[in-house]
Simulated scan of single mutants.
Amino acid sequence: MASPSHRRSRRSRRDRRTAPVAVTVATAVVAVALLVSLVIASRPDGGGDTRDTAARPAAGAAAAGPTAPAPAATSGRPSPTATPSASPSTTATAGPSAAAATPSARPTPASRPRTPSAAAPLAGRIRPGVTYQGVATSYDVGDGDGACSYGPTDDVMTAAMNTADYETSAACGAYVLVRAAGGASVTVRITNECPAPCAPGQLDLSRQAFAELADLSAGRIAITWSLLSPSTSGTVAIRYKTGSSRYWCGIQALGHRNPLARLEVRTDGGWTALTRTEYNYFLSEQGTGCGGAIRLTDVYGERLTVEGIALRPEAVQTTRVQFAAR
């Protein structure tokens, strides 16, 4: 294309009267040339339309969708998994039927792997899914009463747990499957404590229970035992200790299918956990919550809320609730 200066030199030989028109045409031509160059520069292959570039997948990229971002770097220690409250909660009054279980943020124990740690997050020394080794001895249970303070009973398939595994009455009410080396087995309920010289792992069985495994003359046999969550048609009952009032009280749960991990009373500020004694009562030293709603939690994290229990010392008051079988 001729340069503007060259085009002006050609116009100088023409009639002066046509000069203004020629100048106007030349200016228009230059403007069009500049516009064309700008359009060429702004074509997609020149990188001008970022929206098109962003919408079009990069060379070699799969068209199925975006790639998931890489995980952020960690310190090497796994981050804790968010876990719901625990567990389903059942609300009931003493006497009426229990309400349906309500879900919680946390997965229920049944939905988690059946490992000792996950199956019973509130368990102490005795955990489900674990087989314990020890020895069995026997004793005369008398009227069936023992350190767990359940009182006299006709149930003779019971046992006393060694002090270490008794764990300040945490073992009270637990059902245990006991096996002898020869293959015989018996299920017993823990109602008593076996002090020293009973060693960890040792069970002092009622004579009737021991006789299911070996002759009483054997005196002492090797055993294995594990926690059970048995079938039962019974429900939980509540009993206030002798001397209980609205100023001080002791509360006991009876007939629970699974070992009890916690007993709480409702207060103005929410739920308050009571301290468990070695004789299997939960104490409210200042009378907090005495005569009010009670919440029970088993070793699996399931909770039962019971209302309408009167503050009547020594009265066994039944409910219509029970922990789930595991």
Rank of each mutant, 00 (worst) to 15 (best):
R114M: 04
T115W: 07
T115L: 12
P116Y: 03
P116N: 11
P116V: 01
P116M: 09
A118G: 02
A118K: 08
A119E: 05
A120V: 06
L122Q: 04
G124L: 01
G124N: 12
G124F: 00
G124T: 15
R125G: 07
R127A: 14
R127D: 02
R127M: 04
P128R: 11
P128N: 03
V130K: 14
V130A: 11
V130Q: 14
V130H: 11
V130L: 14
T131P: 01
T131S: 14
T131D: 13
Y132L: 11
Q133G: 12
Q133W: 03
G134C: 11
A136F: 05
T137R: 08
T137L: 03
S138F: 02
Y139C: 12
Y139L: 10
D140T: 15
G142N: 10
D143R: 11
D143Q: 12
G144Y: 11
G144H: 11
D145Q: 13
G146Q: 06
A147F: 07
C148A: 15
C148P: 09
S149H: 03
Y150G: 15
Y150F: 10
Y150N: 15
G151F: 02
P152R: 12
D154I: 05
V156R: 15
M157Y: 10
T158P: 00
A159L: 08
A159E: 05
M161V: 10
T163G: 01
A164K: 03
A164V: 15
A164N: 00
A164F: 06
D165A: 05
Y166C: 00
Y166H: 13
Y166S: 00
Y166P: 06
Y166G: 01
S169H: 06
S169F: 04
S169V: 06
A170W: 04
A170Q: 12
C172P: 05
C172W: 02
G173T: 10
G173I: 06
G173N: 08
A174L: 04
Y175W: 12
L177Q: 14
L177P: 00
R179W: 01
A181S: 15
A181Y: 00
A184K: 10
S185Q: 15
S185G: 01
S185L: 05
V186G: 08
V186D: 10
T187Q: 15
T187P: 03
V188A: 07
I190C: 00
T191E: 06
T191K: 04
E193P: 00
E193N: 14
C194Q: 05
C194F: 01
P195H: 08
A196K: 08
P197Q: 03
P197M: 04
P197H: 07
C198G: 14
A199Q: 13
A199Y: 01
A199I: 02
P200Q: 06
P200S: 13
G201N: 02
Q202A: 11
Q202D: 14
L203E: 04
L203Y: 05
D204G: 13
D204S: 13
S206E: 04
S206W: 03
R207L: 07
Q208T: 13
A209C: 09
F210Y: 15
F210D: 09
F210M: 10
E212M: 12
L213P: 02
L213E: 07
L213C: 04
